[in-house]
């Protein structure tokens, strides 16, 4: 493990046993994600992408194996430590945007900073700054339902980045968007990656995302089936 490693995963196995029949979602994966990467995990539905991301982000515990996040072993952290760690180091983007419907765009974006205890004035400045960057500053006072799908996902991107995490994890971020909006969103995210040096890890089976990723990890039946550049896909 080097200082440049954001995530190191060794021998990750995740098995679900909800209905008495074991389902092997992730099988014995070793994986390392380095700072500044803009990587897509691709694979068909049911290949284990979301489960793999959840385990890497500390949202779920692996059945077997170990995960280090920024050099810290997840299994050594208490629930509270892990929660605080995610709050301070990881930004999340979900496929269904998952903004809080009763909060305005500004309130949604500042939520994580509120948890971090950032002072009110600084919160406002940082929210407006990131909303400018994602191009929706004029919608700061609107509720999510008053925005289009693409605009809502921009808000989700702003929310994931405003706390200045070292890693942004996005699970199928373009699943509910048309190809034009998806392309614009990915271009924006890549620009932010280049400007800020933040690490991005996506799961997707969207070609628009694959084309803009700098690295691609192929997942098949819960196992890494290879790594490739976008040109090879």
């Amino acid at each position: 493990m080097t200082d440049n490693d954001v995530i190191v995963a060794e021998g990750i196995v995740k098995t679900y046993d909800d209905s008495g029949v074991p389902v092997h979602a992730v099988r014995d994966i070793d994986y390392t994600l380095q700072k500044g990467e803009f990587t897509a995990i691709i694979g068909p539905s049911g290949s284990g992408k979301t489960t793999f991301l959840n385990v890497l982000a500390g949202l779920d515990t692996p059945t077997e194996g170990k995960v280090w996040l920024s050099g810290k072993l997840i299994s050594d952290m208490s629930g509270r430590e892990l929660s605080d760690f995610r709050r301070d180091h990881i930004g999340f983007i979900f496929q269904a945007y998952n903004l809080f419907p009763v909060l305005t765009v500004e309130e949604n974006v500042e939520y994580v900073m509120l948890l971090q205890g950032v002072p009110s004035g600084e919160r406002h400045d940082r929210v407006m700054d990131i909303l400018e960057k994602v191009g929706i500053a004029e919608y700061a006072g609107r509720l999510p339902m008053q925005l289009s799908g693409g605009q809502q996902q921009r808000v989700a991107v702003a929310r994931s980045m405003v706390s200045r995490p070292s890693l942004v994890i996005a699970d199928e971020p373009t699943a509910n968007l048309d190809s034009k909006t998806s392309g614009a969103l990915l271009d924006m995210m890549r620009r932010l990656n280049e400007e800020t040096g933040m690490t991005f890890l996506f799961s997707t089976h969207d070609e628009v995302v694959m084309q803009r990723a700098r690295k691609i990890v192929v997942l098949q039946d819960g196992k890494i089936d290879g790594k490739a550049s976008p040109e090879e896909c």
Partner: peptide
Amino acid sequence: MYEFGVMKAVGTRTGT
């Protein structure tokens, strides 16, 4: 449930 999942994912503590 999903909303609570998201809240926990972004770092909201159990007590909150």
